[in-house]
Computed example of a mutant assay.
Amino acid sequence: MSLLNDALRDLEKREHEPGGPDKAIPAGLTQPASGANRLWPIAAVALIALLAMAGGAWFWLAGGEGAAPQVANAPQPVTRPEPQFDPEPVVKAVETVPEPQPVVQADPEAASESAPEPEPEPEPEPESSVASGGDAESEPAPEQASVRELTPRERDRRLAGRLEDLLNSGQAVQARERLRAHLVLDSDAPRSREVMALYHLRRGNPARAREWLPDTVVRLYPSLRLLRARIARSEQGRGEALAWLEQDPPAAERYPDYHTMLAALYQQTGQSAEAASIWAGLLETDDTQARWWAGLGIALESQGRSESARSAFAQAARLPGLPEQLRLYVEQRLSGEQG
């Protein structure tokens, strides 16, 4: 537009100068005025205007290339639709001036929806310390079990085992003191009392054995009554021993030794019928015991039942485990010899 203004001003200056437009034309070159000559200024002005417009268009295109990215990066209102840009200037702008890429934060929810989840790999089975040669200490320690208070029977059984160890190693004094300390809290302790009483009985000291077998405790436990009967037989006789065993006898299958001594005492005190009944009850629980068959034969023979006694003696002779002295007696009865 500045070029067009300059051309108009120059033309206006020439027209207002003295002599008019013909002053600048040399002599002999002037022509009479015609319609074509009058149109020349208008054509010149139009040409200049076209040139100015072409220059403006070129300047707009050149300037538009740098301005396009700014328009693309301008923030748009949320409610307005996205403007449609001419792709050509944008492409040129990208080719000429690299546009900085905005940092886009990935949406974790969108990523989890679009991208497939990877399949979990199978966990390797833990190798045992024995197979891998590792130390047992490397394994995780199991949780410590809750401590449970021992029952009186469990404490008695544990103490009895400790007493046997002390007595077998010759530490009778330590065993006695340990048992006395235990009886302060648990006055029964039948197994521990039995261990101490048997220790003294085997050494021929029934009086010391009786110290560990008070009457109030003995009446409650068959195993202690059996020991007390043995002490009574050695000190007072068979009748007193039998009195202890006759107090609430236990089941034969649970306490066979108790019933064996009871049957023997019946036989020794002349009560053969009672003895035969006890031997028969024992054989009902186990008919492979040769001693019980021999005892039954003796009890039946005492009642004059010779044939039944002979059958019992024959059964005893066929079984193993018969003591030597008792075997000789059985063989004599079977051979008809009187001894």
Rank of each mutant, 00 (worst) to 15 (best):
L3K: 13
L4M: 04
N5R: 13
D6L: 13
D6Y: 12
D6A: 14
P18I: 07
G19Q: 09
G20N: 05
P21L: 09
K23Q: 12
I25R: 01
A27W: 08
S34R: 09
A36H: 10
P41L: 11
P41T: 02
I42Y: 14
I42G: 08
V45N: 07
V45W: 06
A49W: 03
L51T: 08
M53H: 10
W60A: 15
G66S: 15
Q70A: 13
A74D: 02
A74C: 04
P75V: 02
V78L: 13
T79F: 13
E82K: 08
P83G: 01
Q84G: 02
F85N: 05
F85K: 00
K92H: 09
A93V: 06
V94S: 07
V97N: 15
P98Q: 10
P100G: 05
V103K: 07
Q105K: 14
D107C: 04
E109T: 10
E109L: 12
S114Q: 09
E127D: 09
E127S: 08
S129G: 11
S138G: 12
E149Q: 14
T151D: 07
R155V: 04
D156A: 05
L163V: 04
L166R: 11
N168S: 14
Q171A: 12
Q171F: 09
A172T: 06
Q174Y: 00
A175M: 03
R176D: 12
R178S: 11
L179Q: 03
R180E: 11
H182R: 12
H182I: 00
L183D: 01
V184L: 14
M196T: 01
Y199G: 00
Y199P: 04
H200Y: 15
H200T: 00
L201K: 02
L201W: 03
R203A: 09
G204D: 09
R208S: 15
A209E: 03
A209S: 11
L213Q: 06
V217L: 06
V218T: 07
L220H: 12
I231F: 04
I231W: 01
A232K: 06
R233G: 05
S234L: 08
Q236M: 09
A243R: 14
D248H: 14
H259A: 03
H259K: 03
L262S: 01
A264L: 07
Y266E: 03
T269N: 06
A273R: 14
E274S: 12
A276D: 03
S277Q: 14
S277C: 00
I278N: 07
I278W: 08
G281Q: 11
L283G: 03
T285N: 12
T285V: 13
T288P: 04
W292T: 05
G297L: 02
A299I: 06
L300W: 07
Q303H: 05
G304I: 06
R305G: 04
S306F: 08
S308R: 12
R310C: 01
A317I: 11
R318E: 14
L319W: 05
E324Y: 09
V330E: 04
E331F: 04
Q332W: 03
L334Y: 02
G336K: 04
G336S: 03
Q338V: 10
